[in-house]
Design a protein around this nucleic acid. Structure first.
Length: 258
DNA sequence: CGGGCCTCCCCT
DNA sequence: AGGGGAGGCCCG
């Protein structure tokens, strides 16, 4: 059976370097085929676009995390994902130079989870699933956050995509504030976001949450989120579209103990 | 409304 | 390989 090879991905990266940067290497994963634009110059340094089967990430060699991970969720792929059991295969990203990438040792006994940006639960086949376990798709995430409220957000977005038929999703970290923690050489994000864009409704919105044990989260417009993180995530949208807040499902608050 | 079961994140 | 917590969901 034919499968997309790493060699093909590397070739595409070469084409990117040759001048197709506006669309990026994997336009199929992006709304309108447009690559997000990083406006903060410091964040733009040492970035590498990595394209995988059903998602693409922009990796930062400074934070040693993705800055975003972009997916086009479809009902068909999600149906396939539901039939795929989880097989863990956390690994450092071989396409990245050692001086830029996270290693398993950075996360080991760090107290933080290796939190997927593009979630395992979205992956429709074994190859994509394995790709999702690259550390280029991970950030150090508070364990309680990741396993509870964040898992709830991911599940709600999958459910919404099944209902809508398809959905574009961009997930990533935010590094806000002066006292950011590191585990090994990996920067720990202060917040996490997940953008949901519905092509059918031509509108989007974002979950925004602190990277800590909490059940509180915010729903922001695309414009508000972009201003917080300094990235134009959806260059193909009009200003008006970025101000229109798509209705997102409510995520269940934790049941009070008694 | 309550209990049992399954799914979904992970860790050491 | 083994362990764990919480939310979703179905059923009575």
């Amino acid at each position: 059976m034919m499968q997309k090879t790493i060699a093909a991905a590397l070739l595409a990266c070469g084409l990117l370097a040759a001048g197709l940067a506006a669309a990026g290497d994997c336009p199929a994963h992006y709304v309108g085929g447009r690559l997000p634009e990083i406006h903060n110059q410091k964040m733009a340094a040492a970035t590498t676009e990595l394209c995988y089967g059903v998602f693409g990430v922009m990796h930062s060699g400074l934070t040693r995390t993705p800055l975003w991970s972009a997916e086009h969720l479809t009902a068909d792929n999600l149906a396939a994902a539901q039939d795929l059991s989880r097989e863990n295969s956390f690994h450092a990203e071989p396409q990245l130079p050692a001086g830029q990438r996270a290693e398993l040792s950075d996360y080991a006994r760090s107290g933080f989870d290796r939190g997927h940006m593009a979630p395992n639960g979205d992956m429709p086949d074994r190859a994509s699933q394995h790709q999702s376990f690259t550390l280029a798709n991970m950030v150090p995430q508070d364990g309680d956050n990741n396993r509870h409220i964040w898992a709830g957000i991911e599940g709600a977005v999958r459910k919404m995509a099944l209902k809508e038929g398809d959905l574009y999703v961009i997930t990533g970290p935010a590094f806000i504030g002066g006292k950011l923690q590191k585990i090994g050489k990996v920067l720990v994000p202060s917040h996490l976001y997940k953008v949901v864009y519905s092509p059918r409704q031509r509108a989007g919105a974002a979950f925004f949450i602190e990277n800590k044990s909490t059940t509180d989260y915010q729903v922001l417009s695309i414009a508000e989120l972009e201003s917080k993180i300094g990235i134009n995530l959806l260059p193909s949208l009009s200003a008006q579209q970025k101000d229109t807040v798509l209705r997102l499902p409510n995520i269940r608050q934790r049941k009070a103990k008694r």
